[in-house]
Simulated assay, not measured.
Amino acid sequence: MKPTLYCYFKAGTDHPAQLARLRALQEEMAAAGWPGQLLRRCDDADTWMEVYPEISDRAAFLEVWQAARLRHGLDMDCHREWFQPL
């Protein structure tokens, strides 16, 4: 079963700029075959999450994703967690 990456983080103070960078990142990842979703915590507008489902090759995904995050200026601390279906 293919796992899903959940990456959550504090968005920072400039939400519009951060959102633009994240959307550009997700466009790049989708073009590489890994479409994602961007979520915001319901009770904390500053906590955001990227979700990438059904990753068959975690190492390959992480290499591309981490490089893309740096290119898009998204080098902030984030908490990554992998989950898979039971």
Rank of each mutant, 00 (worst) to 15 (best):
Y52V: 07
D44G: 04
Q26F: 11
L19Y: 05
Q18F: 05
H15W: 10
D75R: 05
L86D: 05
Q84T: 09
P85E: 15
T47R: 02
P35G: 06
E50I: 06
L22E: 11
R41P: 00
P53I: 08
T13I: 14
A31F: 11
Q37V: 10
Q26C: 09
L22C: 10
W82H: 04
A68D: 06
A60D: 13
T4D: 04
G36W: 01
W48P: 00
D44V: 03
H15Q: 14
T13Q: 08
A24T: 15
D43G: 01
F9G: 01
S56A: 14
W65A: 12
L86N: 05
D14K: 06
D46S: 09
Q37W: 03
R40I: 05
A68S: 13
V64P: 00
K10W: 14
C78H: 09
R71A: 13
Q37L: 08
A24E: 12
R40L: 04
P53L: 02
D46M: 04
V51D: 00
L39C: 08
W82G: 06
D75W: 10
D75Y: 07
L22M: 12
A11V: 15
R58M: 10
R71Y: 03
Y8E: 10
E63H: 12
T13V: 13
R23D: 15
T4P: 00
D57C: 07
P35S: 12
K2R: 08
H72S: 05
D14E: 13
L62A: 15
T13W: 07
F61A: 13
A24V: 09
A67I: 11
E81T: 11
V64W: 01
Y52W: 13
R71P: 00
H79N: 14
K2N: 10
E27S: 13
A30H: 13
A17F: 06
L38F: 04
R23C: 14
Y8W: 15
K10A: 14
R71Q: 12
H79S: 11
R80W: 06
F61K: 05
P3H: 06
Q26D: 15
M29Y: 12
W48S: 02
M1D: 12
D44M: 01
M1N: 08
L25E: 08
W48R: 02
L74F: 09
E28M: 09
D14Y: 06
E54D: 12
L70I: 07
R80V: 11
A67T: 13
T4Q: 03
A20L: 13
R40A: 09
C78G: 03
W34E: 00
P53V: 06
M49R: 01
R40D: 02
K10F: 14
T4N: 02
D44H: 03
A17R: 10
W48T: 04
L22H: 11
D77N: 05
F61Y: 11
G36Q: 03
R21M: 12
A32F: 09
Y6D: 01
E28D: 15
D75L: 09
G73N: 08
P16A: 14
K2D: 12
E81W: 06
K2P: 07
G73P: 02
